[in-house]
Design a binder for these strands. Sequence first.
DNA 1: TTGTAGGCGTTATCAG
DNA 2: CTGATAACGCCTACAA
Lengths: 343, 343
Amino acid sequence: MKKKITLKQIARELDVSISTVSKALKNSKEISKDTTEKIQAFAKLYHYKPNNIALSLKNRRTRNIGVIIPDIVHHFFTTVFRGIEQYADTKGYNVIACVSDESFEKEVINMELLANGSIDGFIMALSAETQRKNDFHHLIEIIDQGMPLVLFDRITDDVICDKVVINDFEASYMAVKKLIENGRKRIALITTESYLNVSEKRAQGYYKALKDHNLELDENLILRLPYQFEDETKSEAFFASNNMDAVLCVNEIFAVRAMRIAQRNGMKIPDDIAFIGFTDGILSKLANPALTSIAQHGEQMGEIAAKMLIEKIERDDEIETEEETFRTEVIKATLIERESTNN
Amino acid sequence: MKKKITLKQIARELDVSISTVSKALKNSKEISKDTTEKIQAFAKLYHYKPNNIALSLKNRRTRNIGVIIPDIVHHFFTTVFRGIEQYADTKGYNVIACVSDESFEKEVINMELLANGSIDGFIMALSAETQRKNDFHHLIEIIDQGMPLVLFDRITDDVICDKVVINDFEASYMAVKKLIENGRKRIALITTESYLNVSEKRAQGYYKALKDHNLELDENLILRLPYQFEDETKSEAFFASNNMDAVLCVNEIFAVRAMRIAQRNGMKIPDDIAFIGFTDGILSKLANPALTSIAQHGEQMGEIAAKMLIEKIERDDEIETEEETFRTEVIKATLIERESTNN
DNA sequence: TTGTAGGCGTTATCAG
DNA sequence: CTGATAACGCCTACAA
């Protein structure tokens, strides 16, 4: 077992000084061709690679970025993560991934842990609990310390930083509009129980679309489900006690579950009832019938977030003063039509 | 914007030496109560937290573990990742996640990048390309440097290290046996095209089960699909030109796709044809009909892998010599029966 | 009780 | 052309 070799060891072996070795390995022309070759050959032989930690300490940058997502099993976050990872990779950055599990406390702890030098910046989506509590002191503190932060999807207006979102309101509006144009009259909304920024915006789009087309808002047609687990009793009661001809769901899991229940109740999709869901993931594609779905372009979102963050990190290095400016990028969601609606 | 404060700054402000500050913050009884209190108060006021990078350099451990998975959108890997992250979190470790994208080169590059001091150990599943090339020099080199490594799921016998797998062979055998006991005679296998260790073992289980029950192995009943993308033409031809009454698939995506095609061809599930898939993910649960599925317990797998790794990391710290021993943990897969088979 | 010095691995500056 | 020194932030054995 040969431990990693250091400059010091090379220097000792070759009977030169550490700085000579360092320079030779960087092809500095201060060093003679002879010594340079000798040192490089030796270094190669022993697979010398500079120690990242020492470099980080010296340069005050780690080339690590911290990503905190509420839930990794949720397809949307996974795709965003993928986008982040891919872009970061091309720029030579590593991604440290933390899952907040929708918990405020885990979010805070993870952030504090990473903020102590382990990373150069954060990309995150707020946990449900954080949004409910409306407590963002940990984010503000981080920013205060000069650490770049990019929020995506689950954002808040209370924190001033770079952000990436999709046009939830418009996307939802368009989806409902489409349903109405297809002749649907009783359009239900299945959304999350807890207060999530995005769900709220999607609900607003739904309200507005109904209103603009002179359809009455019927509170009975709105079902609020717990975000994580559900035993389907609420959903079944919902379908049993209401008649509707279309459903908009704020995510694809809700949509696919709802379709199953509707089918179990003998309804034909899309003849009797149409479905549209957010999150155009694998479930939408492979559902039976395939689900018409609003693509949130998670991968693109992650890529943009990573790009914004890395730009800010690398800018910080150069100029020092210069007034900070923050951007909010809005990605346009697109409707992917499949079998659960008629076109 | 207040940058993070260091021991040095505290020392200067309070007009004491750095080591006094360091000791005071650790409640060393070398330091007088007075100074200790003064220093601690000041440190608290400025939110002093030791710099992780400096600690890593000093202690030669980072409390980071590197995880390399072939594909994060694949549900199974996601759940393993979750298990790793959760366990690591409880032990105060961070997880640096890299995606190899099934590419040998990305796997090598990522490993080399991380191996230079960024992490204390690796957990990984081999990329498809790595398994195909049978080239593991990068793993061997890593181990050689004394870096702990745990392989999971996609493993190889050519590398000696800790491993976690499920009993693929037996699981597959049991699944086929069940199908046979249900009266199925023409049982197909849908597996991956590229050589993957796990697929191979599952195929072996399939062969053995057929043989033990005196069913002939019909090569026409085996469909090999590309791992990542597929336009379904091959699958459709497969279903068109063969008649079968059951299908075993090496993952749930293949299974759900296959079910759709069978249904499109007018077959009734499970009456005309039964399906069993590996990977008991969300797709299996929400498919229509719900898919009988072999649970691989990804989360548990991740947890065990993380536990093995962290134990090795922390053992390395203490004792130095002591002969190394490596374990292979085998997790028992379980069959979750749903609507796609009759019980 | 407090401080000094050396070291973790690297680089940059300056002196020889 | 080469080497000594200081610094990044922290810890600790040893000295005062």
